[in-house]
């Protein structure tokens, strides 16, 4: 069946089944920036924003959020116009294989929206639902701090 979804600010006709998860519906329709890491809501690679709240897209049915706005990492920024968070991840060396990164970008967005000046402990706790095996998380935490600093208009000499 086909349904209209609002994804990354645009209404888009999506081909899906009634029982498609949001993850399946997004990936099957070209939103491959949303990654499938475990399908059990444990790894955070499939995080998207649903009405500005971060959600593991593997854990909900697409049809249950049909009338809500959905934003993926690419919706926050693309290579042509990257978001501060995405740039900060690259500058901090927080991207290795990058499979988990779009999910981390979404978590970071959610955190910084609620809390523009998080402490290290608050960052660690906010990222608890995202798994990364490459970085050991240290550069990811640096990236969140760097993004916060830049969003707050702080000087940046780390580039």
């Amino acid at each position: 069946m086909k349904e209209i979804f609002n994804i990354n600010g645009k209404n888009k006709k999506i081909e899906l089944r009634p029982d498609s998860t949001l993850l399946e519906a997004l990936r099957d329709n070209g939103f491959t920036e949303v990654k499938n890491g475990c399908e059990e809501g444990q790894c955070g690679a499939c995080l998207v924003l649903v009405d500005d709240v971060s959600v593991n897209s593997c854990q909900i049915l697409a049809m249950s959020v049909k009338d809500q706005t959905i934003v993926t990492s690419k919706g926050l920024g693309d290579q042509h116009k990257p978001s501060i968070i995405q740039e900060a991840y690259v500058d901090a060396g927080a991207v290795q294989c990058g499979f988990c990164t779009p999910g981390f970008v979404i978590s970071t967005y959610s955190l910084l929206k609620k809390n523009p000046n998080p402490t290290e402990e608050e960052i660690k706790s906010a990222l608890d639902g995202n798994l990364c095996r490459c970085t050991g998380y240290i550069k990811i935490i640096d990236a969140v701090k760097l993004a916060a600093k830049r969003m707050n208009g702080g000087e940046d000499n780390e580039k």
Partner: peptide
């Protein structure tokens, strides 16, 4: 020098492609 990873931005936005992303 710690130059930026050349595929870093495309990975962070999700535009770089992994196996299952190829259409």
């Amino acid at each position: 020098h710690s130059v930026r990873k050349i595929d870093g931005l495309g990975l962070a936005t999700g535009e770089e492609l992994f196996t299952d992303d190829y259409d």
